[in-house]
Design a protein around this nucleic acid. Structure first.
Lengths: 253, 253
DNA sequence: ATCATAGAATGGTTAGACCATTATAATATT
DNA sequence: AATATTATAATGGTCTAACCATTCTATGAT
């Protein structure tokens, strides 16, 4: 006849209320919530319960909790970090392999390049060209600037994502890069020729974007990423082989 | 001379330890952690602090906390929910509009269709054909089964994502559907002809996948989604117009 | 003026108690 | 004997009250 009432726990109610206030704009980025001792009275709950709620909001990326006298819960500017962390957990925990991620990246970078080609402004091209110039300098400086080159490579891709003017691409690509670098950093050791190839890829790509050649840009981006993936895979394989050589008969537990 | 030691708060250390245990496989899906009163002694912390840690792990999607005597913290099977929730927050909070999401969906569904076409097995085609049959029945049953049709449409797309054998596509598409339906459900009211068109789209798409025509499948999927998007946009516009008509002079705050 | 110091506000943590929910075992009922 | 009811105990949920740790700010010393 009757059904269960209020399943929600107290702290969940608090989470919901504060979250709504933030999403509705009643609380804006940078705003500081009242202190815990005030809030607990406002909600008429204990401080422990309130803190559980705040921890959840923090984990959601909605607030940031600062220590000290000027501290408190500050409304954060939402970004892709939570999506990125979620993706990272999926990758680390289970079904998602690096191959999966590499394949996905190939597709996404292709899409981003195509969309960027259809929308780039003169200012966008300027920025990309500037980055290309910085990349050029890294290469000329030799292998010592290898990491700097990789960083600029990443920024070029992220800039393309920004050119699409679609924040989802920015977030997704950011997540992909976050996670792919977490695994690939240890293998980063391109030689001179590979650096040159990568640089040429990027030049061609930016040119295609500038000319608005969406399909061509897509293909160039895909090839570029694909080559990078192949390169990393071979590095990984080499590492495994090396390991095998050192341990002629690996102990199987 | 010296640098800051241990910035991490106690509860963060606990989160990290339990998370690592789960990701390393020392704790498996379905395992129940010791009770809070035991855990607090194990970690040598207070129960409140422990509970903050558990709340964070829960929000991360790593554990589920059950009430009652058989209850406790159970290790969850990770899924795309966190990614989905993160995306939802991005959409609700700020820069992400429905147009952004619709555009992204168009691209993703295209990719998924292409990848699926390159990898489908006979069993996959059987499953898709079965779903098409169910969709056919919904249409024949008339508009009353409209929602059922939408549901099957969604399942067909998700099945294609599974065919790609890349869990990232499954997660991403799941997130997109989650979020797009949250906004579109209110507009769902296709007429007979639109249902027919959608059904035909799906038939063509499955056929292309069966034949392994990746590019064709991609284009069909994109067109299908694009049509759906246009349709929803017009519905939304109609709703706005209707609102405007009811409120000749909308009050601007 | 500049630097050191004390104070106060805030989050971080602890301890112990009691409430609410739920599976299980013991008991009563048929 | 089978079933329904009831008590029991274990577990998470919440509360209270205190103290610790960090950090900004104002005060005071140099």
């Amino acid at each position: 006849m009757f059904q269960a009432a209020k399943q929600t726990k107290v702290f969940q109610d608090v989470v919901a209320q504060i979250q709504e206030a933030i999403l509705d704009g009643r609380l804006k980025t940078g705003d500081t919530l009242p202190s815990e001792r005030q809030l607990k009275d406002t909600f008429n709950i204990s401080r422990g319960t309130l803190r559980e709620a705040l921890r959840v909001l923090e984990q959601k990326g909605l607030i940031e909790i600062k220590l000290g006298v000027g501290g408190g819960s500050v409304v954060k500017d939402l970004n892709a970090d939570q999506v990125s962390e979620g993706l990272a957990l999926l990758i680390r925990s289970q079904k998602v392999s690096l191959n999966h991620l590499a394949e996905f990246r190939e597709d996404v970078e292709g899409i981003v390049a195509a969309r960027a080609a259809a929308r780039s402004s003169a200012a966008d091209i300027d920025k990309l060209t500037e980055l290309l110039g910085a990349a050029r300098k890294c290469i000329d400086a030799g292998l010592s600037q290898r990491n700097a080159f990789i960083e600029i490579d990443k920024r070029i891709h992220m800039t393309l994502a920004q050119v699409t003017a679609n924040p989802i691409y920015i977030s997704v690509l950011h997540s992909v890069h976050d996670n792919i670098h977490r695994y690939y950093d240890e293998f980063l050791s391109m030689d001179e020729r590979e650096l040159q190839e990568n640089y040429q890829d990027l030049c061609d790509l930016v040119q295609a974007v500038e000319k608005g050649q969406a399909d061509h840009a897509r293909q160039l981006a895909r090839d570029h990423v694909h080559r990078f993936n192949q390169y990393m895979k071979s590095r990984e394989q080499a590492k495994k082989d090396n390991y095998a050589a050192e341990n002629i008969k690996p102990q199987i537990p």
